[in-house]
Amino acid sequence: MAYQPELIGGHVALDLLNTVSWRLDPTRIVDRIATPEALAIWTAAVGLGTEPAPYERVAAVREVVYDVVLPVARGMGPGDLHELQRLLVAAMGRATPTALQPLDWPGVDPVDELVLAAGRLLEREDLSRLRECQDGDCGWLFLDRSKNASRRWCSSGDCGNRARAKRHYQRTRIGSEA
């Protein structure tokens, strides 16, 4: 079965970070875009076209953005911005503005588009809504756009369901031991 991207981050830069599954559990970690086919499927799914993107550059951008954004999701300040700044300056140097109000700088290749998207995430989004999935091993990030800012899991049907099943098991186990 072909790779089916899960675009639950609420922003393309977060969906890029979420191409690594089970990031917090080294025994289960999976890079979902490690093959050229999977990367092509993902870039098409997020609207970056079908132009081949070099995996090494995409993976490097992904890790730089993760290192900046994860501390924000955990309630701390941003991580080291120096490398992201370097990537943004280089991408903007290759980009040509196409729209004004808001100023839009589409990149010339998918990797530059991802770098510029990361910049837009930090510039335009309400980062107080940035969350890390509460499943202890998941590590996926998302923008909580729920009305009362109460979203806890990347996916209610996946991590959320596992958490509910675990709580149910613990309740019924404790009840049967009494």
Rank of each mutant, 00 (worst) to 15 (best):
E83D: 13
A34V: 14
W22Y: 13
D15W: 06
E63P: 11
L24D: 13
V46R: 02
E63C: 09
D25M: 03
V72D: 02
A45P: 11
D25Q: 09
V69L: 02
T27E: 15
I33W: 08
V58S: 03
V72A: 00
V30P: 00
G47L: 02
R57T: 06
D80S: 08
L39D: 08
M76N: 13
V69W: 03
R74H: 08
I41F: 05
W42E: 06
A53R: 05
D25H: 03
V65C: 00
T27D: 15
E37H: 03
R74W: 01
S21C: 05
A73S: 12
I33E: 09
L39I: 03
V69P: 06
H82D: 13
D15L: 04
H82Q: 09
A40G: 13
P78I: 04
D15P: 00
L70H: 08
R74F: 03
D15M: 03
T27L: 14
E37A: 13
R28W: 14
I41A: 15
H82P: 00
D67E: 14
D15E: 05
N18L: 08
T50Y: 00
Y66P: 01
A53G: 10
A59F: 00
L17P: 05
A45N: 07
G49A: 09
V65K: 00
Y55E: 09
L70G: 00
V69Y: 02
E83A: 11
R23G: 04
V68I: 05
L81E: 10
W42A: 09
E63I: 06
L81S: 09
T50G: 12
L16A: 04
T50K: 13
V72P: 05
A40L: 07
W42L: 10
E63L: 13
E63N: 12
T35V: 09
A60F: 05
V68G: 06
E83N: 06
T43W: 03
P26H: 09
V20T: 14
L17Q: 07
A45I: 08
E51T: 15
T43D: 06
R57M: 04
G47D: 01
E83C: 00
A73V: 11
L81K: 03
G47Q: 01
G79M: 08
A45M: 10
V30Y: 02
Y66N: 06
V64G: 07
L39H: 06
R74T: 12
D31F: 07
A60Y: 07
T35P: 07
V69H: 03
V72K: 01
P78T: 08
